[in-house]
């Protein structure tokens, strides 16, 4: 087995505006099972950061415990990282974000790490609108402990051992919308064409962005009867739209037919171009997406694409008015302005 990736690269590998190739955004060779959907998501994060010309040192990769949470080793090896306790990634990211809002936070989590042990953490990160990209690598099972059903396994989905799941699965996207998430998307690890622009838009979004990515577990949950297998997801995938992310640096020369294309402007001027497939749905309308999600569940469909976005999102730091300067660069006299200021401050409450 190879433990090292050869240092060779294609001699004509394209470079981005920073002069980096994708190689500079990669990590070490994956130790996940061969064919794991998570590796495709890692590769999509690499693609998204490369294409957005993000300097790797400006990113903090946050994770908890699980197969999913191992992946930050496999992408962005030149970025910051924090591998936290199981399910505690949202809290650690919230703290990090408040202490230093200048970094780009990419959290990766799994269905166990998010929907079971980390559920209490997850929902508060959503409602606080922490400015981060939260990627759930959702395979519907506990891969690290031999494939038991997880909280996102669909009711009736058959496990590798042949048993049907008797509990309702948690729909993370519906839950996040309910809790006030400002960017919610769903995708499939086997569809990079859709996933990469979704990650790019999520990173650009000003606030909490959830991307729930169905990511088949090739070892324990890729069997017939599973609703998270490659074959099942491909057969039941209903894309709401064809998404294209247009970064602000690219001059827009075409005009769009707005009856079939939704153009959503983001806070920094980037555009999300959605070629709508489903007519009843509007990405700015919560009700329409909640209905669509319920209908999809009833029809055994998996809705993918950008589900909901709030263009007027105000992220946590702006909500509570934190300082723009990272705390670790604030000088002593700013952090501790002296007894005179303290007296004046206490005096306000006298």
């Amino acid at each position: 087995m190879s433990y090292l990736k050869p240092k060779f690269a294609h001699p004509r590998l394209p470079k981005n505006d920073l002069g980096y190739t994708k190689k500079e955004y990669e990590g070490v060779i994956s130790t996940l099972c061969a064919g794991c959907g998570h590796d495709s998501i890692s590769a999509s994060i690499v693609d998204a950061c490369f294409e957005l010309d993000i300097a790797p040192h400006r990113v903090a990769k946050m994770s908890g415990i699980g197969c999913s949470s191992k992946t930050p080793a496999y992408f962005l090896r030149n970025s910051h990282g924090f591998n936290s306790v199981h399910g505690r990634m949202p809290s650690v990211t919230t703290g990090a974000n408040l202490a230093n809002r200048s970094l780009i936070y990419i959290g990766v989590s799994g269905d166990g790490d998010t929907a079971s042990i980390g559920m209490g953490q997850f929902i508060h990160a959503v409602r606080r609108n922490v400015n981060m990209t939260y990627i759930v690598m959702n395979n519907g099972c506990y891969g690290l402990t031999k494939g038991q059903d997880s909280a996102t396994a669909d009711k009736g989905s058959i496990s590798k051992s042949g048993d049907a799941n008797s509990f309702e699965g948690i729909d993370l996207c519906a839950l996040a919308i309910e809790l006030g998430a400002t960017y919610v998307a769903q995708s499939f690890s086997g569809d990079k064409e859709q996933l990469v622009p979704l990650i790019k838009a999520a990173i650009t979004h000003n606030g909490f962005s959830l991307i729930n990515v169905i990511s088949p577990c090739v070892t324990f949950n890729n069997n017939p009867g599973s609703t998270k297998s490659y074959d099942y997801v491909r057969a039941h995938n209903e894309a709401l739209s064809k998404i294209d992310f247009v970064p602000v640096k690219e001059e827009i020369v075409t005009t769009y037919d707005h009856t079939s294309v939704n153009v959503l402007e983001m806070h920094d001027g980037s555009l999300i171009k959605l070629q709508k497939i489903s007519p009843e749905w509007d990405p700015n309308d919560k009700l329409s997406i909640v209905t669509a999600l319920h209908n999809a569940r009833a029809n055994h469909q998996i809705l993918t694409g950008l589900l909901y976005i709030d263009n007027d999102s105000v992220e946590l730091n702006d909500l509570i008015n934190t300082t723009e300067t990272p705390l670790n660069t604030l000088n002593y006299d700013v952090l501790c302005p002296g007894s005179e200021v303290l007296r004046e401050f206490v005096g306000r409450y006298a």
Binding site: I29, G35, C36, D39, S40, A43, S189, G190, V218
Partner: peptide, 9 residues
């Protein structure tokens, strides 16, 4: 099964 693993690695 088109998992893309070969392409990614």
């Amino acid at each position: 099964i088109e998992c893309d693993a070969c392409m990614d690695v």
